[in-house]
Amino acid sequence: MDDKEKVIKIISIITKIDIKLINESSSINDHIKWDSLAHLNIMEQIERNFKKKISTSKMSDLNSVDKILKFLKK
């Protein structure tokens, strides 16, 4: 499973959005279930799964699959 699939799976599990509806361009504005609380849980899971620290002030910026993937590549 590559990073993109992993990220999408995490988002799908936490938000309970059908995995088929999430793609690289999906963002917090596209899905009502991806709210601020779900986003915080997504960030926590990304940190755990990828063993990469995300600063609290950065979390709001990582509001789409694309941005999360770019952050992980850094």
């Binding site: 601020s36 609380l37 915080l40 849980n41 926590e44 609290t56 002030s57 979390m59 709001s60």
Partner: peptide, 21 residues
Amino acid sequence: LNNFIYNPLLRSLKNINFINS
């Protein structure tokens, strides 16, 4: 408020759940 108060405060709690949020 979101980046510098809400997120750090909620993360500082043991459970990030709906009630705490």
